[in-house]
């Protein structure tokens, strides 16, 4: 599996994602700078967490208009799986690859702690080997993770089985306890929690590993 990880000024979880992907069997991922205008051949594109462009204007707003993004949008149209985590989820919403928006946490505080998620659908390359209802405990670290979508968009997400993860105990006020959503073709996943930071027994939990293993098996299967 060949993966590309986007890097913006202020991105800070790119190595964490790379570590998780390599543990799941990926080749060493390529880091792609935001000023680049093309991607190397990729079976997976990751938009990692951090604070791209200092979160100025709106989280992810400027990153979503970076020179690299037209190539990402083109890859998405071809069905290349895209995973956006935390700030990456914000970038994907700002770029229009996912619907809705991430707003300031309802309690206005930055939340940095472990949360428990429930898998809401197994129907995606990211969750196919995780049973619906499966629980995993992974960290969150964000100030703007309060997912919002208008009633029509929300209905389309719910009716289309496009909520990938829900919080068991909502930390940020997200509508319908949404922690992660899928695009209409189910190939783009955005989520606020950090599964990549729960993939190595050396730092505690490995609950997040299942997601990366699922991606690796889905993509290796597709390549074979």
């Amino acid at each position: 599996m060949k993966s590309s990880i986007l890097v913006f000024p202020g991105t800070n979880r790119e190595r964490d994602v790379a570590h998780a992907l390599v543990r799941a069997g990926s080749a060493e991922p390529a880091y792609v700078w935001h000023h680049d205008t093309s991607l190397p051949p990729s079976d997976l594109i990751v938009v990692p967490g951090g604070f791209a462009h200092g979160d100025y204007l709106r989280c992810g707003a400027m990153a979503a208009r970076s020179p690299i993004m037209p190539a990402v949008i083109e890859a998405a149209a071809k069905g290349v799986p895209i995973l956006g985590i935390c700030n990456g989820f914000q970038v994907l919403c700002e770029s229009g690859l996912l619907p809705g928006a991430l707003m300031r946490n309802a309690a206005l505080k930055f939340v940095c702690r472990d949360v428990t998620l429930e898998v809401a659908t197994s129907d995606s390359p990211f969750t196919h080997s995780l049973a619906k209802g499966h629980r995993m405990t992974v960290p969150v670290a964000h100030h703007d993770g309060n997912y919002f979508a208008d009633p029509e968009t929300l209905k389309a997400l719910e009716d289309g089985d496009r909520v990938a993860f829900r919080y068991v105990d909502n930390p940020n006020g997200s509508i319908n306890d949404i922690a992660g959503i899928l695009s209409e073709n189910r190939r783009v996943l955005g989520m606020m929690p950090h599964p990549e930071n729960a993939t190595d027994p050396k730092i505690g939990r490995i609950d997040g590993q299942g997601l990366f293993t699922a991606i690796a098996t889905a993509l290796e299967g597709a390549a074979a």
Binding site: C93, P99, A101, F148, D150
Partner: peptide, 9 residues
């Protein structure tokens, strides 16, 4: 439309 506002919200 392109940057200053997010017309979703």
């Amino acid at each position: 439309k392109k940057l200053l506002a997010n017309t979703v919200i």
